[in-house]
């Protein structure tokens, strides 16, 4: 088992190039599970029809591939529950200049 914090840390290298925020701080990662060398990630996107989907999903897969012992990474794109900006972390909000 790889430390979950380490996985999350690796995911911070994947970001939305427009907002300049990583997928973790954006609140797009809904869950990470591990079993027998397979890492499964559930993630969402800020909006359906966002042209960045493919890059971000692939980026997440690649970011987790760096760990020794990982044989397979499964990235699932889910839409439940629907993402809202309220999922953005405190750091993320600060970076966006979102005071509220």
């Amino acid at each position: 088992m790889i430390d979950k914090e380490a996985l999350m840390e690796a995911l911070k290298n994947v970001y939305d190039p427009e907002l300049g925020l990583n997928v973790v701080d954006l609140g797009l990662i809904y869950g990470i599970e591990q079993q027998d060398g397979t890492v499964q990630v559930d993630m969402t996107m800020t909006t359906p029809g966002c042209p960045l989907h493919e890059s971000m999903l692939q980026g997440v897969g690649d970011a987790l591939s760096i760990f020794a012992g990982v044989k397979r990474v499964e990235v699932r794109l889910v839409w439940e529950p629907l993402w809202t900006p309220d999922r953005i972390s405190a750091e993320g909000r600060q970076a966006l200049g979102w005071a509220a």
């Binding site: 692939q58 897969g61 591939s65 990474v73 990235v75 699932r76 794109l77 889910v78 839409w79």
Partner: peptide
């Protein structure tokens, strides 16, 4: 490692 991307639910 193999990377598999799926989209089970409909948006």
């Amino acid at each position: 490692p193999t990377v598999v991307i799926t989209s089970p639910g409909s948006p």
